[in-house]
């Protein structure tokens, strides 16, 4: 059963040949494939890590830009609001001033016109009075004395009967 012979040597040689063939056919390509895969995985992981960091940075940047834009928008709106307020105030001020000026001018104009009208009217009245008096009396008085007389008369009229229409 246990018969040792030259088979032993042959088996050793067989096995050494098998090791050589397997190393050449299987082991080396497989080791290369494993190393390649390891390198590939490491590279993929590294790339992923790098991209993740880049994405993070980009996100941060975008967030900053967004915040900046929001602040700017806020500032612009505030500025616009302030400007509008100011403009409104100015316009109102101007309008008020204009209004006051116009009112004043109109009042003065009215007063002047009335003065003129009154003066004209008074002269007219004096002349009419003199003409009427001359016709009534039939005689011509001294013109200056006449005027003084009528004027005096009208003044006294003013005081007594035309109380609220001041000259």
């Amino acid at each position: 059963m246990v018969d040792l012979n030259w088979t032993l040597i042959a088996q050793i040689i067989n096995f050494v040949i098998l090791v050589a063939i397997l190393t050449w056919v299987g082991y080396k390509p497989l080791m290369k494939a494993l190393a390649d895969r390891q390198a590939h995985i490491a590279e993929s992981l590294e790339t992923a890590e790098r991209e993740k960091v880049a994405a993070e940075e980009l996100k941060l940047e975008y967030q900053q830009q967004l915040a900046q834009a929001r602040n700017q928008a806020q500032a612009i709106v505030e500025k616009a609001t302030k400007l509008a307020e100011q403009t409104k105030e100015e316009i109102l001020q101007e309008a008020r001033t204009e209004h006051a000026r116009l009112l004043k001018a109109a009042t003065e104009e009215i007063a002047r016109e009335r003065e003129l009208a009154l003066t004209a009217m008074r002269n007219e009245v004096v002349n009419l009075s003199i003409a009427a008096a001359g016709k009534v009396l039939g005689q011509q008085l001294d013109e200056a004395a006449n005027a003084a007389l009528v004027s005096n008369f009208i003044n006294s009229l003013d005081e007594q009967k035309l109380g609220d229409l001041k000259c």
Partner: peptide
């Protein structure tokens, strides 16, 4: 030996990722 070699040969042709 032939089986082992064929197996190793078949298994390592067209090695894929």
């Amino acid at each position: 030996m032939a089986i082992v070699i064929v197996f190793a040969f078949v298994a390592t042709r067209r090695l894929k990722m």
